[in-house]
């Protein structure tokens, strides 16, 4: 492989897989919130309900 091809392979992998890594990190930092009626059910009965569309 030529030097320019190797450089571009690394750049592409870093950009795309790095972007995925950052996106996953961001998601991890913002834990999933449950909807109000689910939270109410937990408070009331100590059990969660399935989310409703």
């Amino acid at each position: 492989m030529s030097a320019s091809a190797i450089v571009m392979m690394i750049v592409a992998l870093l950009a795309v897989w790095g972007g995925l890594g950052l996106a996953l990190l961001n998601l991890k930092r913002h834990p999933e919130a449950i909807d109000d009626e689910e939270a109410d059910a937990v408070l009331r009965d100590g059990a969660s309900v399935t989310p409703v569309r």
Binding site: V16, W17, G19, L20, L22, A23, L24, N26, L27
Partner: peptide, 9 residues
């Protein structure tokens, strides 16, 4: 963002 980058990955 996860979906978009995973697809490209």
């Amino acid at each position: 963002f996860v979906v978009g980058f995973a697809n490209s990955g």
